[in-house]
Structures are given as C-alpha cells and as structure tokens.
Amino acid sequence: MTLGTWFALLVAIILAAEAVRAVRHRAFGSERWRRFFRHPTAAWGVGILAFLVIVAVAAPLIAPFDPDRQLDIIGLKNHPPSWTFLLGTDVLSRDVWSRIVYGARVSLGIGGLGALVAVSVGSLVGAVAGYYRRWVDAVLMRTVDIGLALPRIFILLMAVALWDRLPFWVLVLAIGLTSWFGTGRLVRAEVLSLRERDYVLAARALGAGAGGVIFRHVLPNAAAPVIVSAALGVGNVLLLEASLSFLGIGIRPPTPSWGNMIADGAPSVYTAPWTTVAAGLAISLVVMSLNAVADGLRDALDPHEEGGAT
C-alpha cells in the first residue's frame, strides 16, 4: 500500500461517514427518516454500503495494485496479510485487497442491476396480474408458481449452456429474470387490495386509463414492500453470483468478483484462508448491511405509522 492509496481509503471512509451524517441530518425534518434511524444498525448499514459504493467507483485510486497482475508467481504466492498486501495475496500472487476493491464493482454492479431487473419485472407483472385479474392473473401467477418451484441454479445452468462463460450483462439479465417471482407475487397481493380502494375507483370514475391508474395510484402505494424486497434482493443476487462463480459459470476470470475470489481461494483455504475469507466477509457485510437497511425501511415506509389526523 502506498501513501496515496492509504489516503484515498481514508477519504472514502470520511465520505461514507459524511453521507450517513447528511442523511441523518434530514432525519430531523422528516418523521419517516426518524423512524428509519430508530434502528441503530440502519445507520451502520447505510455507512457500510456508502463506503463500498465509493470504493467501487474510485477503485483505481484506492487499489494499490493492478487486480489482475501476478506480482511474483514464485515469491509472492499466497503471501499472508501485511502492510504492503493488506489482505495478503492469492494463489496466483495477485493482491487480494486490490481484487476486493475491483470486485466490488462487478459484484455490487451485478447485485444492484440484477435486483433492479428483478424488481421492475416483478412489479410490472404483479401489478398487471393484480389489476386485470381473471385469466391474466391466472396465467401470470401459474408462471410464478413454476418459477418459484424450479431451482434457479437449474434455470441458469440452462442459460449457461448457450454461452461457455456469461458476459456481464447476460449474467445480470439471467439473474434478474429468474429472481422476480417473489416480488411479483408480493406486488400482486398488494395490488389486489389496493385496486379496491376508493381512490382507485375514483380515478377510474374520472376516466383515467389503466396505465394512469397503475402508475399513479396503485404502484406508488405498493412502494414500501417493493423497496424492502429490492434491498433484500440485492443481497440474494450477490449470493447467487457467488454460487454461480463457485460452479465456474459466473464472471469470467481474471476479472475479479467476490464470488469467483471465493472459488479461487477454495483449494488453498487451509493454508491461505485470507482470499476466501476476505471475499466471503465482503459478501456477508453487504448482505447484513442490506438487511439492516431493509429493516429500517420497513419501519420508515410503514403506512400504518403514517402520521396525521384521524
């Protein structure tokens, strides 16, 4: 680690703390954010996620080494953590910390985009099924039943049969399109109850079309469970990517992802656990942070706590 990368790391930590402070400052003005910060872990979750996102964005400044460079395949293979190699080196003598930093780009990217695809498709399918009901609902929900019953890994393996290694965007789509079933069912249930609300009937009575009703009146009021399921979805996608990489069908090496780093370190996990442990910890940290944030959001967005006159 050079002085410059230490400095960049420090700046990243300060920025993350600052981000939490800024959000928290808003909390004084808004009942909703106050409820969010009632969970002490929620602030930590936001801070850790902010830190990792900053690290991912500023990877070239923060990573001390080229993540793919084999520094010295004879002398620096499986080097334990030190001041130079913060998290040690892996079996190919690459700096693990640098790979974690660059891996954040890939893993958070897949997690975020995969969850985005899943939540968008799930919300749309759920809203259409719940709003139109009848055969539309029957067909879509049977699809969801089948999707939930089939093991996702199996579907993805089928997709992989078409490519030997999945390009990033195919992986995002493949994961996203096999992860929306739960969200779809959740949104449908929400829409089924929302569509009977008088304000939805009022909008129809005033001549609003189906699109206007769904996007203006139904989905915004179903936002709470959607946002919470999105936050949890990112973690699930991250874990799924790790499993895929472990099976050798995730991101193509040498590009680092936290998933394929676990796979890389697995053979030497007893002699040099740091590669696997670092990547595993990074994944756990993200998943735990997301769970904490989701908990806070669940409270913050709870319509039953919506203040006001009754």
Binding site: L201, A205, L206, E306
Partner: peptide
C-alpha cells in the same frame, strides 16, 4: 365519465395518500 361522478363513503380511503 365527465357527466356522471361519485362521492365515496370513507373519506380515509377515497384520497390517494401519496398525492
């Protein structure tokens, strides 16, 4: 729809809480 309208019973569910 312009000519026929409706006023609802429950003032709490007849307005969209997000608008």
């Amino acid at each position: 729809r312009r000519r026929m309208q409706i006023v609802f019973q429950d003032p709490y569910s007849s307005l969209n809480p997000r608008m």
